[in-house]
């Protein structure tokens, strides 16, 4: 019995990481209806940036967030302003194609610079620290921290979206670009800020990914799939929904893995397909399409 509690718990905690993968994706789709195929690869890019930062500056991975987050945000602003803004329009296809190309470029650039070696960031003692919740149920400190950060990030995004002038600008521009411009909002700037925010979240996700598991240039697309699944399960347009989606995915994978290690990914995909079949709009949909 405690076995299963442990399993659910681990699933919930990893679900927090999946929710972080998904949050940036959800934000971008919500604000500008852009599906960023390179999202997973940008998470991996953030992981490598964290690697370089910790190696050159000699700081710990968690401290490297102070460098990687602003750096990725700046990359996001530039990426949107210089490249992706040109793809936006009525057609959904150009952003998909361009971000797909970007995905390929990022993967191969990382491969060239860092080789295909599997790497991992060392966070020190915190990686092994566990906390005994109650009899037989143990919780790793790092996964717990990750989960707490994920909830905090989603809470912060929710705050930005619904309680700040920037969030109003995001929602108004998503509703009606033309009228938003009449209010003095420069769409190019608003979209660039949204992408900057998205990549700031990606940076956090990337650093935690790098600490938690081995990474190499090719693991981006799989992270993208997890992100997509979490967003779709949770419902488009709802950030808390994305958190729930991540948790559902994490728990499903944990249950699958407990039954048979080979079933981990399959269990997650099956859960996703079930939700899609039974409730295609997701658990907490918010977006008008």
């Amino acid at each position: 019995m405690t076995d299963w509690i442990n399993v659910i718990f681990q699933g919930v905690l990893v679900g927090g990481l999946y929710a972080m993968f998904a949050a940036g994706l959800s934000l971008i789709f919500g604000v500008m209806r852009l599906v960023n195929i390179a999202h997973g690869d940008l998470i991996v890019l953030a992981a490598y940036l964290a690697l370089v930062t910790t190696a050159t500056l000699g700081i710990g991975p968690l401290v490297s967030l102070l460098v990687v987050v602003p750096l990725m945000a700046a990359i996001g602003y530039a990426l949107q302003r210089l490249l992706l803004n040109r793809t936006l329009g009525d057609d959904l296809l150009p952003p998909l194609l361009v971000t797909f190309g970007l995905s390929v470029i990022i993967q191969n650039a990382l491969l060239t610079v860092f080789t295909a070696d599997s790497l991992k960031l060392q966070a020190g003692a915190i990686e092994q620290a566990t906390y005994r919740l109650f009899d037989g149920v143990y919780v790793g400190l790092l996964p717990l921290l990750q989960f707490v950060v994920a909830v905090a990030v989603i809470g912060a995004l929710q705050f930005v979206f619904y309680r700040t002038a920037l969030g109003r600008a995001f929602r108004a521009t998503a509703d009606n670009q033309a009228v938003a411009q009449l209010m003095g909002l420069d769409n190019r700037h608003v979209f660039a800020l949204a992408m900057a925010l998205s990549l700031a979240v990606v940076a956090i996700a990337g650093v935690f990914l790098a600490i938690r598991a081995n990474f190499d240039p090719s693991i981006g697309p799989a992270r993208l799939i997890f992100g997509f699944e979490a967003v779709i399960i949770g419902g488009l347009g709802s950030l808390w929904g994305t958190l729930v989606g991540g948790l559902v995915l994490g728990v499903a994978q944990a249950i699958g893995a407990h039954l048979d290690p080979g079933w981990q990914l399959l269990a997650g995909h099956i859960a996703f397909l079930l939700i899609l079949a039974v409730r295609p709009e997701g658990l907490f949909p918010r977006i008008r399409t």
Partner: peptide
């Protein structure tokens, strides 16, 4: 605008605040 063009995702006050954001 013709047809009002209010933002459906925003409340009345948020619409007004957005108008004043300059």
């Amino acid at each position: 605008p013709e047809g009002r063009g209010l933002f459906p995702s925003l409340s009345v006050e948020e619409n007004l605040l957005l108008g004043g954001q300059l």
